[in-house]
Amino acid sequence: MAENPIYGPFFGVMGAASAIIFSALGAAYGTAKSGTGIAAMSVMRPELIMKSIIPVVMAGIIAIYGLVVAVLIAGSLESPSNNYTLYKGFIHLGAGLAVGFSGLAAGFAIGIVGDAGVRGTAQQPRLFVGMILILIFAEVLGLYGLIVAIYLYTKQ
């Protein structure tokens, strides 16, 4: 295919990179922010460590979403001479940006909710169920990005 432009794969590569970069950014913020909450809380209530690791695990899952999409995109990158159209490049960029920025937003939400929730759980244990629910709703934001990214990725 001679009409495939040489810069087509650039968009696909940027999509794969932005998927993992922005998801990892959100996951890192979530881990760090809830980690400070856990550290402050554990001084007085060390028996709650296992419950309060949950925001950290959920922030890690955000990075796994980005990893999945980045691996999917990287698996279907080709050279322009191998029928990699500009349309495919745009699709891959869109998929990567969708999961990347959704992961960034979800990671921020998990970090803030995890910090306040873990500190609050130390004083009122019945807050735990509410914290888990809010964390799940924050996590689902990243899952929506993953669904849109996979749906975009399957368009050819």
Binding site: E47, M50, K51, I54, P125, L146, I150
Partner: peptide, 23 residues
Amino acid sequence: AVVAVIVLHVTLGLYIYKAYNES
């Protein structure tokens, strides 16, 4: 990928269940 994400949430649910029951 869909299977992996489902399995991921099942394992996360197991951990939450364990952490909830532990205390």
